[in-house]
Amino acid sequence: MIRLFNDYNALSVTHRAWLLMFRGRELDDALVTELRLKRGDRVLLFQDEGEDDEWEGVLDFGPANAPASDIEAVWYVQL
């Protein structure tokens, strides 16, 4: 299972984690393809290296929802 960085303070009101990073790179279409990820994959989210606080969720693509309601569509993890 892949681990993605996320700022837990940026969760949407529908518990979507949408500011996703992998090894310093933003999770965009190119990186999703490179990592061979797809909708429905289970991933782990972390906020700080070395902390035990990880969250498991499902990768999906669509609107981030508030507070990022001005974003059309994005890769996100549904918690």
Rank of each mutant, 00 (worst) to 15 (best):
R39A: 12
L20Y: 01
L37N: 14
G24I: 02
L44R: 14
L35G: 15
L19I: 07
T33W: 03
R36C: 13
Q47W: 05
D48R: 01
W18P: 00
R23I: 04
E49H: 04
V32G: 07
L20R: 01
G24F: 02
Q47F: 04
E49S: 05
R25Y: 05
L27Y: 00
L35C: 14
Q47D: 06
D28R: 04
V32A: 15
F22L: 08
R39I: 06
L19C: 06
D41T: 02
R25H: 06
L31G: 04
M21A: 02
F22A: 00
D52L: 08
L27N: 01
L44V: 13
M21E: 03
R42M: 10
L35E: 14
L45T: 10
V43I: 15
D29E: 11
V43E: 00
T33M: 05
D53T: 12
G24C: 04
A17D: 12
D48W: 02
R25G: 03
L19W: 06
A17Q: 12
L35F: 14
D48H: 03
F22I: 01
A30S: 14
A30E: 13
G50P: 08
L31A: 07
K38G: 12
G50I: 07
E51M: 09
R39Q: 11
R36D: 10
F22G: 00
L20W: 00
E51A: 13
M21R: 01
E26F: 07
G50R: 04
T33V: 05
V43P: 01
V32E: 14
L31Y: 12
R42D: 06
V32D: 14
A17F: 13
Q47K: 09
L37W: 08
R23Q: 07
G50H: 07
L44E: 15
R39C: 09
A17G: 13
D28C: 04
E49D: 09
E51W: 03
R42Y: 11
A30P: 04
V32N: 14
L20T: 00
L31R: 12
R25Q: 09
E34G: 15
Q47S: 10
R42N: 08
E51P: 06
G24W: 02
E49T: 06
R25T: 03
L45W: 08
L19Q: 03
L19D: 06
V32R: 11
A17R: 02
F46Y: 15
V32F: 10
L19R: 02
K38T: 06
L35N: 15
R42T: 11
G40D: 14
L31C: 10
F22R: 00
L45M: 13
F46N: 02
W18K: 05
Q47P: 05
F46C: 00
K38I: 03
K38M: 09
D41R: 00
R23P: 02
E49K: 04
R36T: 10
L20V: 02
A30F: 09
G50W: 06
R36L: 14
